[in-house]
């Protein structure tokens, strides 16, 4: 049995902090598939701490701390190595992206067939920057500028990655993949 009083308090904390914490986790996970697990682990940990009667002044910061630890544990050394290997390709990627015109309107790239599973499976395979950009842009309505600040990327890089991925996705959906 869960303590009902604690549960009400917990639910209210969940409602207030979910967007921020899920955003943090998405921006720090290397794969969207892991996001749900880490969100759940983070809040379960919080519940256990609240049950012990610990008084937390800044719940959101505390939750970010828990999420950080969960992400670190989740990925461990593999994650660090993966991050290093990704960053080594960044320069090459940036050179390619620089060829895309700056005035391209992303919203004009329409995905004609909205197959959720296909889009999801496609996005999962992309690198973590692209996954994060899409989430922030489409789910949390971040602007290009806000995304660039959040992820410490150039605005042009953010826009170009969005454009390129959407183009590829459009092409794949037309092909029926």
């Amino acid at each position: 049995m869960i303590d009902q009083i604690n549960l009400r308090e917990f639910e209210s904390i969940y409602e207030e902090t979910y967007n921020q914490i899920s955003k943090y986790i998405v921006c720090h996970c290397s794969n969207l598939e892991d996001v749900n697990d880490i969100i759940q682990e983070t809040y379960v940990e919080l519940y256990r701490i609240l049950l012990k009667g610990k008084i937390i002044e800044n719940i959101e910061s505390y939750l970010v701390g828990i999420a950080k630890n969960k992400i670190r544990k989740h990925y461990g050394l593999l994650y660090k190595l993966k991050e290093i290997s990704l960053s080594s390709n960044k320069k090459e990627e940036n050179d390619l992206l620089n060829q895309i015109p700056n005035d391209v309107d992303i919203e004009k790239i329409m995905l004609e067939k909205a197959d959720i599973e296909v889009i999801w499976n496609y996005l999962k395979k992309k690198n973590s920057d692209i996954q994060r950009i899409f989430y922030l842009y489409y789910n949390l309505d971040f602007t290009i500028k806000e995304i660039s600040e959040e992820l410490n990327l150039k605005e042009s890089d953010v826009k170009n990655k969005l454009y390129r991925t959407l183009k590829e996705l459009q092409k794949n959906l037309r092909k029926g993949l």
Partner: peptide
Amino acid sequence: KNKDIFKELYSKKINK
């Protein structure tokens, strides 16, 4: 719109 597609995507895949 793309935004609607992705909103639906994320609401299903990372559901509060």
